[in-house]
Design a protein around this nucleic acid. Structure first.
Lengths: 199, 199
DNA sequence: CGCGAATTAGAGCATGTGCTCCACAACGGG
DNA sequence: CCCGTTGTGGAGCACATGCTCTAATTCGCG
């Protein structure tokens, strides 16, 4: 019925990922992307409409991968008993993602929220972004219930510190550098435990 | 001997600071800066040579302010006895800077290292940047000696986690939002204690 | 009252960016 | 074998940015 694709959308996302991991958001330009993927400007716009949407798609692909990993870890530990252990596992999951797919982890650590949630993201992708945000919020509420017995603002906030902010501080720099040291993971576990115990 | 300045360099730095705090590094453009300071393009370049150098100068001004605060806190706690308490105080000092000068703290949290250490920084300022880096490294070694009895790579690394990475994770988002909650400072203290105790 | 020096003003240049647009190529169905 | 559909290539546009350059301005000094 039509001409077959020469460049799959995933290949474009791969190229975008490599550029962003290498030089951050500023490294992702239409020309650099087209050159890296061996495609033309026209193909990029035909596939994704605009750059913001392409970037959001690249991020979304990896964020889904990460959330699946996170969910599995949380579910397993939750079934095995400890809410505390579940929070620990959740906090450690960026390190596990880095072990099994360093590129994915590096992309997620290379972008800030504002860089992804730019105004111009086209609608189907923007909706997926919001849905994924809600999914993560759900996991955080589950963990809050498991550790505090409630999921109010304060409890969720403590869990967010443990699962989002602390890993970002300790793990992300090492993920960007390409290697997460075991000592750092122990530091993280200790910090998470201490925050959970803070009255 | 000459025409007096209409816009002091400090006024330009103030304008740059406001722009960066408001919209990050991308918000700082020559035109936006000139408009905000009521100056002209020419004055900006006459005073600072180029934008990178101006940005580095703005950052340096606040970084010095911060380092002075940090040193005072560390020296006081060190004299009072505890190396442990000194690390706690050092970790908490971004919060104290935010209390006494929110704008300064917000500027320091609004920029990444790569944004400041761009290639183009002119030489006198670049040298100051390096000097300040060495000063901070010296403080970290002092703290390492006070807590571990030695200042090797491993000890300094633990202290760096406590004094740089943990505060960045817990305090910076709240500084950007404009308010640091007491609970967050307690979380930080707890996390620092836990990391110091990790074998 | 000139004169040199420091500062200002702002037009203008080169470059890099996202994006548009349209001619063209490759496929399957009639 | 043409034709509609889908994808490709790439020239080119509009715009924003950092920066340069020159003429004008305003001071102190002799």
């Amino acid at each position: 019925m039509a001409r077959p694709r020469l460049h799959s959308p995933d290949a474009l996302l791969d190229a975008a990922e490599a550029l962003v991991v290498g030089s951050g958001r500023p490294g992702l330009t239409v020309r650099a992307l087209a050159a890296r993927a061996g495609a033309s400007n026209g193909s990029v716009y035909h596939a994704f409409g605009d750059l913001e949407t392409l970037l959001a798609s690249a991020w979304l692909r990896r964020a889904r991968q990460f959330l699946a990993l996170l969910r599995d870890a949380v579910d397993a530990e939750l079934a095995a008993g400890g809410g505390r252990r579940a929070v620990q596992a959740a906090a450690d999951s960026p390190a596990r993602l880095a072990e099994q797919d360093l590129g994915a982890a590096q992309l997620l650590t290379a972008l800030t929220r504002e860089e992804i949630l730019a105004e111009g993201v086209a609608e189907p992708v923007a909706a997926d972004l919001r849905a994924l945000d809600r999914e993560l919020a759900g996991v955080l509420r589950t963990l809050a219930r498991a550790t505090h017995g409630r999921a109010d603002r304060a409890a969720v906030d403590v869990v967010t510190t443990c699962v989002v902010r602390l890993p970002a501080a300790l793990l992300f720099p090492e993920i960007r550098a390409g290697r997460v040291r075991p000592l750092t993971r122990r530091h993280l576990a200790a910090a998470v435990g201490a925050v959970l115990d803070t009255p």
